[in-house]
Design a binder for these strands. Structure first.
Length: 280
DNA sequence: AAACAAACCTGTGCGC
DNA sequence: TGCGCACAGGTTTGTT
């Protein structure tokens, strides 16, 4: 579900409503959500601490705690982070609950029907052992910047389809299936083109599109599809889905050229959509 | 190296 | 209305 824009929207919510509020209680319902360590470890490391910053790298949320530990949250396909009053009923599949100090007290809830997502709390000194994937992430286009030369080098490094390359988190961090399709469409690049064969001009357009699409999506609070799986901390839906030009539009007329139709197929194991006329 | 499938789970939408 | 199947925003692992 959530890609860079959705995770960034959640991060902003955490910065506003979570950072600075002491964690006075921790409940772990389903241990699978904290499987990387254990229920006991998460409770011990979180209780009594205060979050001091909320960061993001690609689709990974990282909260710095005043204890010196870090909490990593990955939403995977169906995770949500919600904040609400303890008196309000917890949604189904609420697996981790942090009770926050303050009047009124509130709860930060990790909700995740499919339980692919997870919460990990660890000493940053052992990050390379506990969360090794963080060190394998490529540059985040929004927080770290991704310049044209970096993008060209990343594309030149693989013979896979350019769509697969954009979704490879070790090349560029944060792009998922929706934004990959939208970025390629805006750049007018065919998703099946071998990454290595992307021309200079195409790379330039991709570079611009990556930044434009991601930033516009962040400005709209991300994309909330029909199933409303993604909502922000306050339960609010995003609206960038209204701007999707190809994702989820297979078979319909292309909104960009008005001539072609949106085609679909599998690329790198993921369903992809593109316009047969404007993407080359 | 890359293509592919399967795995991790649950919910939803669709055809019959 | 109910059943079975396909499929879903992600990532890792193992097999060709």
């Amino acid at each position: 579900m959530p890609e860079l824009p959705e995770v960034e929207t959640v991060r902003r919510g955490l910065e506003q409503r979570f950072v600075g509020r002491r964690i006075v209680g921790v409940e772990v319902g389903r241990e699978r959500s904290v499987r990387r360590t254990s229920r006991e470890e998460v409770i011990a490391r979180l209780t009594g601490t205060t979050p001091v910053a909320a960061r993001r790298r690609g689709k990974y949320l990282i909260v710095d705690l005043d204890s010196g530990d870090e909490m990593m949250i990955h939403l995977r396909m169906s995770g949500q982070v919600l904040i609400d009053a303890p008196a309000n009923p917890r949604p189904p599949h609420t697996h981790v609950v942090l009770t926050l100090a303050g009047r009124p007290s509130e709860e930060l809830r990790f909700v995740d029907p499919r339980t692919f997502g997870e919460v990990v709390v660890y000493d940053p000194a052992s990050a390379s052992d506990v969360v090794p994937e963080l060190s394998r992430l490529g540059p985040d286009p929004v927080t770290e910047g991704l310049d044209l030369a970096q993008l060209r080098a990343a594309l030149a490094s693989t013979a896979r389809a350019v769509k697969a390359a954009l979704l490879d988190q070790s090349l560029v961090a944060g792009i998922g299936n929706i934004y990959g399709d939208e970025i390629l469409h805006r750049a007018r690049v065919h998703p099946k083109r071998p990454a290595r064969k992307v021309s200079r001009d195409q790379a330039r357009r991709l570079h611009v599109s990556i930044h434009e699409v991601l930033n516009e999506a962040i400005a709209k609070g991300g994309s909330t599809l029909d199933d409303a799986q993604y909502v922000d901390l306050m339960g609010e839906a995003g609206s960038y889905q209204e701007n999707h030009l190809v994702y989820g539009r297979a078979g319909q007329r292309c909104l960009s050229c008005g001539r072609g139709f949106v085609l679909s197929g599998t690329i790198g194991g993921r369903t992809s959509s593109w316009c047969g006329v404007c993407q080359r």
